[in-house]
């Protein structure tokens, strides 16, 4: 609870994240982790990795649609803000108090977009990859030139590193909110309920 001077609006608990969005989030977390690990440590024949990738494509398409027709907190128009809003949010970032933000905050929104964009690029490069081993080939590899098929393998490997960095950043920031700002962001993604302050 903020103490002292002006506390404009009271903090209240709302249903923030709808069940579909939460389902999307945890399914994406699971299938991205699974694909990543299968790609890195899995069997030479990457059938399971491929299927995980197809599920991720489905999930990304869902999120794209949900970003236009879903409930307000899920909509891109609701959480995508300009640089001014991001700078404003950054000013209060280090305060040792919860953000009580009702949704993706302006800075977190950038992270959301970055993760979705990188994943979209990653599934695209995967679909057209041909590592020339005769057991794994992206289903759309035959539609691009042989040099593109081969380069795509390199992009896919590079993308995997970017995804690792973004996911670690995501987890690190959640820990930062939990222990520095004393705000639990995991529970709202589990039960949908979050303490927010209107603004």
């Amino acid at each position: 609870m903020p103490k002292g001077a002006p506390s404009p609006d009271p903090v209240r608990e709302v249903r923030l994240w709808d069940p579909f969005l939460r389902g999307f989030h945890w399914a994406l977390a699971f299938f991205v982790t699974a694909s990543w690990c299968l790609g890195q440590f899995g069997p030479a024949k990457m059938t399971l990795h491929f299927w995980c990738g197809y599920v991720v494509i489905g999930l990304l398409l869902f999120r794209l649609v949900w970003g236009f027709v879903g409930p307000a907190p899920a909509r891109f128009s609701h959480f995508l803000r300009g640089p001014g809003a991001v700078a404003g949010y950054l000013r209060g970032l280090m305060l040792r108090e919860p953000s009580y933000w009702p949704g993706h905050n302006p800075l977190g929104a950038l992270s959301v977009i970055a993760m979705l964009a990188v994943l979209a690029a990653q599934v695209s490069s995967g679909l057209i990859s041909d590592p020339d081993d005769y057991i794994n080939v992206g289903p759309l590899a035959s539609y691009v030139s042989s040099s593109t098929r081969s380069k795509a393998v390199g992009w896919h490997e590079f993308g995997a590193n970017i995804i690792l960095i973004l996911v670690l950043l995501h987890v690190a920031v959640i820990l930062f909110y939990r222990f520095w700002k004393r705000e639990d962001l995991v529970r709202p993604m589990l039960n949908g309920r979050k303490q927010v302050r209107d603004r």
């Binding site: 030479a44 024949k45 590592p131 020339d132 081993d133 005769y134 057991i135 794994n136």
Partner: peptide
């Protein structure tokens, strides 16, 4: 093919 491809990979 699986065995050979595994060696390629």
């Amino acid at each position: 093919v699986g065995k050979l491809g595994g060696a390629c990979k």
